[in-house]
Design a protein around this nucleic acid. Structure first.
Lengths: 298, 298
DNA sequence: CATAACCTTTGACTGTAGTCAAAGGATTGT
DNA sequence: ACAATCCTTTGACTACAGTCAAAGGTTATG
């Protein structure tokens, strides 16, 4: 990776300082108003019935701390705590009517804060701001996603493939037969690779590489979770898969895709893949692509 | 002002949440490391010799709280406290060598954090991110600036005019004679108006409107503090001055400017002003502009 | 020159955030 | 059926953040 320019680091830190001081602080202060911040955040995360376990994980809180905060919210009549139907060790907490009112008020205040801020701008300026923060958020998310190789049989790998299969099944008129998925041994060891993209610990994308014949590899199941689309993650996965292929001495990569996946086809073209005649008899493909890889020396 | 779209408010809040949770929290946590956050922030603000009074204002701290924090920093040998030379009520605090080392370490860590984040992006993506956060910051700053009318004799007005005069004096080869500034009575009452732009309580720009002859007004001293340039503030001032003119029934605005102020001339043109022959004998102008105003009904 | 205003220090608090360990009920694996 | 594991509760703390009021020295103001 190329080194990060110090000017960009400085710019980023400037923004960070400005934003947290000006917006973050304001937000924290006004959001809770007459309620401790921890409680306000908790209220916000509860939504419609969550287990304490889930909340602990999401907010990164100590079990005891969370238990106490929940109790005070309960004492104020804002939440209701009950035993989880399926597992009596778990407690499920949900908002009462009063809790929903409180949450709505909290949202109203935060909305008013944001609206008040945007009010100082003209229409086009607001559009530019919205555009800029959208871009910034997408890039920051992408920067926080890591792509790593995992075993083809690992739970995260199977979870991704299941999600992929369900996704395709819903999108193809003819459905999708899960037996067409790669088998773990096809993407293990020297035979191939299975890559998973993680965002904050959760798998949000995957891609498989397997050997077709000497010097030629095939990409399969390049998939990105719906929540993580439009970030440029597919390209990242593609690049990582190509690196895997190069280190294995493969010189050509092939893949097939479906006519209905228009964005995917456009992306493959943009990434240097060219359409070729069918090279295989996959059931679900009707467009075939190929790319020549450059040796690692370059 | 047009109402703010709820979609834009939602987008802004989404970004706000994401950013404070992901970046702000990280920053706070790692910045101090083995030091309370308050102390770390204090250390950061001290720089090279500041009075406690100044710090109190900048960080919004309680006098007692600040006094105590300063004392613990002093006990750790990070700062030196002395009496202000001009006013013995004030204390001046400055970093010791050890304090500067500590601050450098703090900066190094924050830089590393930012760099680590940017490392997940390719060069062009980093450029896009830098561009986006720059745009966002400029627009957020602009949104936080308010333009209000003040009396032409008010301290803030005079401060702006002094800064304007010094600015022009340094930029014009022939210098600038402060007696050419508008007199308070020219911009008071119905005669004219003096507008000051405030960012977080500090004046960062100004503009004057005075009556030239019936129906015709003149804009003078439109000025933006160097720290607040390139935000679009001059246009805001211009628009506000035009509103003032319209409510006074003026139908034409004129102004003169100097050949060396190229950006200013470009802005006037972009804002609908057209160049006209000289209408006055101002010493410092050599380009004259005019704009017809539309009645408020439109 | 007295008095008001100002800046800092000190003492005495309060509330929030957060940690750690022990204990008890519930579930899972063997 | 027994042990190990899991989830929550409770008690006992610690540290940080922040407020309020009294007091003492210093400077401006009439």
């Amino acid at each position: 990776m190329d080194p990060v320019s110090t000017e960009q680091v400085a710019e980023f830190r400037r923004f960070n300082r400005y934003f947290t001081r000006r917006i973050g602080a304001l937000d924290d202060h006004y959001l809770g108003q007459d309620r401790p911040l921890g409680e306000a955040r908790l209220l916000f995360e509860i939504g419609e019935g969550v287990s304490l376990r889930e909340l602990r994980g999401r907010l990164g809180l100590d079990a005891g701390y969370l238990s106490r905060m929940t109790k005070t919210l309960q004492a104020q009549g804002l939440v209701r705590v009950s035993v989880h139907p399926g597992d009596s060790r778990l407690r499920v907490v949900e908002l009462t009517r009063a809790g929903r009112v409180e949450l709505a008020e909290q949202n109203r205040r935060a909305d008013a804060l944001a609206a008040g801020l945007l009010e100082g701008l003209s229409g086009p300026q607001r559009d530019r701001l919205t555009e800029a923060i959208g871009t910034a958020q997408r890039l920051l998310r992408l920067a926080g996603i890591t792509v790593t190789r995992v075993d083809g049989a690992a739970p995260d790998a199977r979870a991704c493939l299941d999600a992929y299969a369900a996704d395709i099944d819903a999108r193809f008129p003819e459905g999708f037969d899960p037996s067409d998925l790669v088998r773990p041994e096809e993407v293990s060891g020297d035979a191939g690779a299975f890559l998973v993209a993680y965002e904050e610990g959760r798998p949000v994308g995957c891609g498989a590489l397997r050997r077709l014949e000497p010097g030629i590899g095939e990409l399969r199941h390049v998939w990105v979770h719906p929540d993580a689309r439009r970030l440029g993650l597919a390209r990242r996965l593609l690049a990582a898969l190509e690196t895997e292929a190069t280190t294995r001495g493969l010189t050509t990569l092939r893949l097939d895709t479906h006519a209905s996946l228009t964005e995917a086809r456009a992306m493959y073209r943009a990434c240097g893949y060219t359409e070729i005649p069918p090279y295989s008899e996959h059931v679900y493909g009707d467009h075939w692509f190929e790319k020549r890889l450059h040796p690692p020396g370059n």
